Computed example of a mutant assay.
Amino acid sequence: MEILIKASKRDSKGTGASRRLRRAGTVPGVVYGGEKEAVSVQFDHKELFLQFRHEAFHASILTLELEGKKESVLLRDYQLHPVRNTIQHIDFQRVSATEKIHVKVPLHFINAEVAPGVKLGGGIVAHILTEADVSCLAKDLPEFIEVDLSALEAGHSIHLSQIKLPKGVEFVQLAHDNDAAVASIAIPRGAKAAAADDAEAAE
């Protein structure tokens, strides 16, 4: 699914100019990277925010239309207003079809309800990571990565090396020998105490 964002060039720069743009319902931004120079741009806040609130906007290759020309970009940085939750500024990076990119991709956890640690052990799933850094070509970038918890036992964790990745995608942390834990199943204290009581009663 193509996510299209429309921009126009921004001539006025500086804090005062940006403040005036925001008051007029416009978001100042920058597009940079590749072999072209950085360009100051602006977006309609309402149109941009409709796209921005979707998860895919933050971890997908986006199509930026500027002066009738389209190019592939990635969201790289943004600032939100602390109270109004409006976008104050936004940065996009141009994407090359032949160079690998590093992007944080959301993790979607599935089958927690059938995990032995939950179903049989009464455990609670703890999400240690909710996103992970991946390296891949733009065409291979997944919108999200599924983490299957169906075999996870109580007191155990699932690590990056145990997650099945799409072809052409790799975890950046694994490339640096960091096999981080992604999720675990903890046994609640009450359940531990009950199990200990049952063991004593059996004796």
Rank of each mutant, 00 (worst) to 15 (best):
E2N: 15
K6T: 14
D11M: 11
K13F: 05
S18F: 02
R20F: 00
A24W: 03
P28E: 01
Y32H: 08
Y32C: 11
G33A: 04
G33M: 04
K36G: 13
E37Y: 05
E37G: 15
V39H: 05
E47R: 08
F49T: 14
L50N: 14
Q51T: 04
Q51M: 07
Q51C: 07
H54L: 15
H54K: 15
E55M: 13
A56Y: 09
F57T: 11
H58S: 06
A59K: 03
S60A: 11
S60Q: 03
L62A: 07
T63Q: 14
E65C: 06
E65P: 05
L75D: 03
Y78C: 10
Q79V: 02
L80P: 02
V83P: 01
H89D: 12
R94Y: 00
S96D: 13
T98Q: 12
F109D: 00
L120E: 10
G122R: 08
G122Y: 06
V125G: 05
L129Q: 09
V134F: 02
V134W: 02
V134G: 11
S135W: 00
S135E: 15
C136V: 09
D140A: 13
P142G: 11
V147C: 00
L152N: 04
A154H: 07
A154Y: 05
G155V: 08
H159Q: 04
E170R: 14
F171D: 04
Q173W: 10
A180L: 11
A180T: 08
I185N: 02
I187Y: 05
R189K: 14
A193D: 14
A194V: 12
A195M: 11
D198F: 10
E203Q: 11
